[in-house]
Design a protein around this nucleic acid. Structure first.
Length: 884
RNA sequence: GGAGGAUUAGCUCAGCGGGAGAGCGCCUGCCUUACAAGCAGGAUGUCACAAGUUCAAUCCUUGUAUCCUCCA
């Protein structure tokens, strides 16, 4: 057999793109036609089509890719559906910003032209996103790619809307919505972000209508007083019991408003009296509804005061009107005082403009019955969150859910499938575009101008992408999906709603396992954001370290649900590991020269062979368990320590003896086992380091097809080789002990010394050490390594060291720092003394002997013996050293 | 106001009812014929604080402190 040449250093750019293209060309990402068993399917949380993927996407998609590749290799029919989201407001904002640079508004183009332009922007950004996902190595099935405004998904949106309407779950109503004046649209409650901001609290006198004095109310927004319809006090507030029902004069107007009682009033806040402005405050809105109060809207859609206000203030922006109103109130003697007052102000989650509560016509979904089904799904364990603690958050949201405002005053999105007949006023809600009014047969129909909230399409994602409402094969085969991986910031927006829609339309949960990842933050724990400039571009990471290094590092750091704090340097970890894999492979492939691969039977295994196979085997088990619990960091750590610490540091090192100096037969057997482990390792590591393992796998003489579709190594209970594990562990201990002596004495590596190894009677690894004498000698730099089980060898003048069940004597004649070594031994003895005292205290405690598990007691006894031996030997060694 | 999370090595973080861990960083020595992106050795911790449960607590319970997030 010929050696295989590998480039001298690991350079992911040499092969990552090529490998990805190869997988794509061969159609490896789609579900195998002949795969059997339970399906495994995942839908990718669709990124906003106008966004560039950030590290959060990298984390999320890396984890999905790991899961998907893992299950694909276990042989299950596996599907990962990619796609993008039309992101109504965000995308429309992008296009409007472009227009603004050209001095245009969307109205100048008109709806149709504007949408044409938006589609172009969408296409461009979509291509960027797709190429980013490809660069990352995501093994999603591009044949199944979807976009929320695809024809099929649009049909699903209509089906959902009309079905809900038919079930009486959709209604249009006057409602106080969160209105973003900049985006010009209503927002759902969840799309409002609150931020504590400085403001003022104005204490204003409202005189009694009968002239008998005045009361004082506190408000942060005096300009809304023209919309006041009442002043409320707490019903149990003793101070104000007498005045409930009295009328007040609204200053600056000739309006009369009553004093009412409502328990939502906070008695401690301000004067304990609040003005009620139902059209401009959510709490007041609720209060107004409870008390049958009119809602007086005082704003125009552009944020100026309207005709419900006195002439003087009309058509002035609210902020300016406030100053004017305050001045007039002051002039009229109505202001008692003005205090600084910080309070939470709602901002648009897209453009961060201050939200204005605004009374308007909107479409809503009644959420109560939907939420009940979604809650039941959790109670029945149809869905499970990883980690579990998110289940509380989910239930709480479901229990306190409010109706969902789904209309948006935008152009980019799914048009609401409602038409109004201009002739008879009939409202038509239809799956198909109607050509005439079903009631009067008039043909002048006008479609509702609003579009639906983007989440109204993405909440259907797990089944709309599989063809729903059609009864497709995909739907039958891959629904419900298996696992959803998402960050916690969209549990409410998206995850919860998917569960509701799926329960409502398909009668089952859309997925079982919900994996909630942390957020990616910078090294100081701050969110990565454009304004801070602390973002890390995944493409830059890939450029610098490779996609495998990025994925492995993220996986290694993604402890269940914890935020991931990273900087550029973090990725060195994955990069070094990949380099290690590369070089270990390079070494092994070099050694193929002139060799024949042979089958080595289990009965021919050496202890070291058994050990490495056992380590491989237990790693398989560890990974399986980690994957089942979505403990990605555990899986990554298992792989890392197996490949690097076990395979490279010990097994390959041990093999070198035979590889370099063995007979042909020994060399053949050595390389055969090495190649076998390497081949298994590539399969084992492939989900976590996909490109490098494929690149290497293709070069292995013992490979079969592509690793991406190879079978995943399975745990085999019969191949644990626990005895070998114990023996090798002892051997490693001996090596470390001698090395430590040398290192402490600063003996140069090239200086070979005689070592006498003196095992105590019970030491199990004596035979192994005899068998591995050459290996052990080379590792400890011994000129001769004498196993002295009968204590026959003189050790006078040798430097002593002890370990678990043995002593070593290193023959070193050069000047050594005896004092330092004595000090070290004394410290060690003191530490052992402490440990011994603790153990003895335990053992002399009757309660411990009585109550503790027998194994625990046994272990303590063993520890006691161990510490005693250590102290005894240390004492001897100190004496020995003192005589130097 | 409610809920959740965090507090372990210099940094970022795992972990666990019975002898404190990883990566990075640091110190020392090595270019040992795969890898200096490497190898070997080493130092560093009242596991936030206080009570309780337990034979045994870094781990479980409660409280306190500090920090973070979400919801209202």
């Amino acid at each position: 057999m010929k050696a295989v040449e590998l480039a001298k250093s690991y350079n992911p750019k040499d092969f990552e793109d090529r490998i990805y293209q190869g997988w794509k060309d061969k159609g490896e990402f789609g579900p195998k036609k002949d795969a059997s068993g339970e399906h495994f399917s995942v839908v990718m949380p669709p990124p906003n089509v106008t966004g560039i993927l950030h590290m959060g996407h990298a984390l999320n998609n890396s984890l999905q890719d790991i899961i998907v590749r893992y299950y694909r290799m276990t042989g299950r029919p596996t599907l990962w559906v990619p796609g993008t989201d039309h992101a109504g407001i965000a995308t429309q904002n992008v296009v409007e910003r472009q227009l603004k640079k050209e001095g245009l508004r969307r109205q100048d183009l008109g709806r149709e032209k504007f949408l044409e332009r938006t589609w172009l922007v969408k296409e461009k950004h979509h291509d960027i996103i797709k190429s980013q996902l490809e660069k990352m190595g995501c093994s999603c099935d591009w044949e199944h790619e979807r976009f929320t405004m695809d024809e099929g998904l649009s049909r699903a949106v209509r089906e959902a809307f009309v079905t809900l309407y038919e079930r009486g779950l959709i209604y249009k109503g006057k409602y106080l919505v969160n209105y973003c004046p900049k985006c010009g649209t209503a927002l759902s409650d969840d799309e409002v972000e609150y931020e504590n901001m400085p403001g003022k609290l104005y204490h204003v006198r409202y005189p009694y209508a009968d002239g008998s004095g005045y009361i004082t109310v506190a408000t942060t927004r005096p300009e809304t007083m023209f919309g006041d319809v009442a002043v409320a006090v707490h019903p149990e507030d003793e101070r104000y019991k007498e005045i409930v029902g009295k009328l007040l004069c609204l200053p600056l107007t000739d309006k009369k408003i009553p004093i009412i009682a409502d328990s939502f009033v906070d008695r401690e806040f301000g004067t304990g009296m609040v003005k009620i402005t139902p059209a401009h405050d959510p709490n007041d809105w609720e209060c107004g509804r409870r008390n049958n109060l009119e809602a007086v809207n005082i704003l125009n859609p552009d944020g100026t005061l309207n005709d419900n206000c006195p002439q003087k203030y009309r058509n002035i922006q609210a902020v300016e009107a406030r100053e004017l109103v305050v001045k007039d109130l002051e002039d009229g003697g109505y202001i008692v005082k003005i205090e600084d007052h910080a309070h939470d102000v709602g901002h648009c989650y897209r453009c961060h403009t201050v939200i204005e509560p605004y009374l308007s016509d909107q479409w809503f979904v009644k959420m109560k019955s939907l939420a009940e089904k979604a809650l039941a799904a959790l109670e029945n364990s149809d869905i499970v969150f990883y980690p579990r603690r998110w289940e509380n958050t989910y239930s709480h949201w479901m229990e306190t859910i409010r109706d969902w405002c789904i209309s948006r005053q935008l152009w980019w999105g799914h048009r609401i499938p409602v038409w109004y007949c201009k002739d008879c006023g009939e409202v038509i809600v239809s799956r198909e575009d109607p050509s005439c009014c079903p009631k009067c047969h008039g043909t002048s129909l006008e479609q509702d101008s609003d579009v639906l909230d983007t989440w109204f399409s993405s909440w259907l994602w797990p089944f709309s992408t599989l063809g729903w409402p059609e009864k497709t094969d995909d739907l039958a085969r891959f629904f419900p999906t298996s696992t959803l991986v998402s960050a916690y910031d969209i549990i409410f927006f998206w995850i919860s709603r998917m569960i509701m829609s799926s329960e409502e339309f398909l009668g089952q949960a859309p997925f079982r396992d919900i994996v909630i990842t942390g957020l990616v933050r910078d090294i100081q724990g701050r969110k990565m954001s454009k304004s801070l400039g602390n973002g890390i571009d995944p493409l830059e990471v890939i450029d610098q370290f490779g996609a495998d290094a990025m994925k492995f590092t993220l996986c290694y750091m993604a402890a269940q649900g914890q935020d991931v704090l990273i900087d550029m340097n973090s990725f060195k970890m994955g990069s070094r590991f990949a380099n290690k894999i590369w070089n270990a492979t390079r070494f092994l492939l070099m050694n193929l020269e002139g060799r024949n691969l042979v089958k080595v039977g289990e009965d021919e295994y050496s202890v070291m062979d058994k050990w490495i196979y056992g380590q491989l085997n237990s790693t398989c088990l560890a990974i399986r368990k980690a994957m089942e619990g979505y403990r990605f960091n555990d899986a990554a750590q298992s792989i890392y320590s197996f490949f690097w610490n076990d395979f490279c540091d010990w097994y390959i090192e041990e093999s070198k003896q035979r590889l370099l100096h063995g007979t042909d037969d020994e060399k053949d057997r050595a390389i055969s086992i090495l190649m076998d482990i390497l081949e298994s390792s590539m399969r084992l590591m492939h989900p976590f380091l996909s490109f490098i393992t494929e690149e290497i796998y293709q070069k292995l003489p013992n490979h079969d097809g592509d690793v991406i579709v190879a079978s995943y190594p399975e745990y085999d209970g019969r191949r644990c080789f626990e005895d070998a594990a114990r023996l090798v562990s002892s051997l490693q201990d001996v090596v470390r002990t001698v090395r430590s002596v040398r290192s402490n004495l600063q003996i140069a590596p090239e200086k070979k010394l005689k070592v006498v190894f003196r095992p105590s009677a019970g030491f199990a690894a004596t035979d192994l050490i005899r068998d591995e004498l050459v290996f052990v000698s080379s590792l400890v730099g011994a000129s001769s390594f004498i196993v002295d089980s009968g204590s026959a060898q003189p050790v006078d003048g040798a430097f002593p060291a002890n370990g678990l069940g043995y002593e070593c004597f290193v023959f070193v004649r050069d000047a050594i720092d005896v004092d330092a070594e004595i000090a070290r031994l004394e410290a060690d003895t003191a530490k052992a003394g402490k440990s011994l005292a603790a153990v003895e205290a335990k053992l002399s405690n009757e309660a411990f002997i009585r109550n503790a598990r027998p194994e625990a007691v046994e272990k303590e006894r063993a520890k006691k013996a161990e510490f005693e031996e250590k102290i005894r030997k240390n004492t001897e060694h100190i004496a020995l050293l003192s005589s130097f």
